[in-house]
Every structure is written in structure tokens, then in C-alpha cells.
Amino acid sequence: MPIPNLEKPIIKGLIQKDKVIVDGVELDGTWNAFMIERTQTGYDQSVWDEIANTIEGATISLCWQCGTCTSGCTMREYDPNYSPRRFIDLARKGDKQALIELQDSLWRCVSCQKCTHRCPKGVLVEEVVHSIHNYLLKHGLVKRDPGTIFDELFLETVMKNGGRISELLLGGASAKAGFVTMSLRDLITMMGPLMKSGLIKDLMKPNRVKNWDRIKPVLEEAMKEEVVPE
């Protein structure tokens, strides 16, 4: 029997052979699979409480662990460690260590909402997954993930650019953050069309949205506020 991906990282000294004959008896499978002992010595109930008290996470208490969400999840196909069901279970138990171990997967939701539409208990799964991730970020338990960094760059660009998105600025910022590469040659290739189309003007002096001076403080104020359910 193949070893599930979830288990692989916690197994040491793995020997795998498709077929082995011992004393004339044919065996197949995995040998020498020693589990590294990882013992949970206490759960932290405050994790569930805190997540359930946010607007996004309010439906977490409905989940009954059926796995409908995970089995149809878009991201699951790319990342075998990605399991909304499991994230919910660990968050409700307050198994922070296990969630921290999953930090390279947790942020990857593409918000396709398949899970939310199919959940038989009415859990808003996509929102709950984000609320779990937000909880970990807020408490500094996980490193800032590429998704969050990109969101921040995006917002920053919009604010700097007078309420509009500039592909070029965003591209530059993304390159600086290491998400994309941009070489001198790329810049030279881009310059031609930019000059010819006159877009270069927009780049130097961005075309702001109407009344930006009045809208900006409103947006800034809104970004400061933390929403708490009643």
C-alpha cells in the first residue's frame, strides 16, 4: 500500500520496493517505515473561540468533518497537503503546531467556492479557511505567505497610484518581492511600445480617479478598522 502523502514527512528510513520475494512468498509494499513520534500534549480551546467570533469564521462550529469540501477542492489537486476539512479540525481542536506545519499550504485557496456550495452543513468553508489563516498571521505563528504579500503590494500600488492599478508598477513591485523576474532586456523591450502609445506619460504622472484627495482618507480610515461581529 502506498504511503499517503500526509504521512511521508513524518516517516524516516523509508525503503520502498514494488515487489519482494522472501522465502518464496511474494510481498509488496513498504519496509522500515518508522514513524517519528509526535505527541500532542494539549489543545488550545481559545483558537476555536477566537475564530468563531470573527465574521468570516463564524460558521466553523457547524463542521462535522465529512470531507466533502476537501474531496472537491480545486487546490487539493495541486497540493496533497491542502485540506479545508483538516484545517477546520485542527483549528477547532487548537492544534497550533499542526497548523504551523501546514503553513506552506494554508494560504493557497483560490476562492473558487466549490467547497462552500457543497458543504452539507452550510459552513462557509472558503471564508473559514481564510479566517484560520488570518488567525495564524495575526498571532505571528506563520511566516507571511506570498498571497498575503501580493495582496499588500496590490493595495499599496493602488493607493500610490491614485486609486488605479498600474500593471507596470505592480510588475515592478512583484519582481522586487521575487514573484516574477524582470531583466534589463524586458525593460528595454517594454520601453518601445510604452513610448509609442504614449502610456509612458501615465506612468510618470498617473491618471488618478476623480476626487482622489477625498476618497483616499476614507479608504485609509476603512483599512484601519477591524470588523467585529455583533
Binding site: 500532542q40 500534549t41 479540525d89 485542527l90 492544534d95
Partner: peptide
């Protein structure tokens, strides 16, 4: 053992 999450031994007070 937390059988929902593989290989989690439990020793909880």
C-alpha cells in the same frame, strides 16, 4: 490517538 489526523499520539491532561 487522534485518528482524524494521522499519527498524532495524544497525552492530554
Amino acid at each position: 490517538e487522534d485518528t482524524m489526523n494521522l499519527n498524532r499520539a495524544l497525552v492530554v491532561p
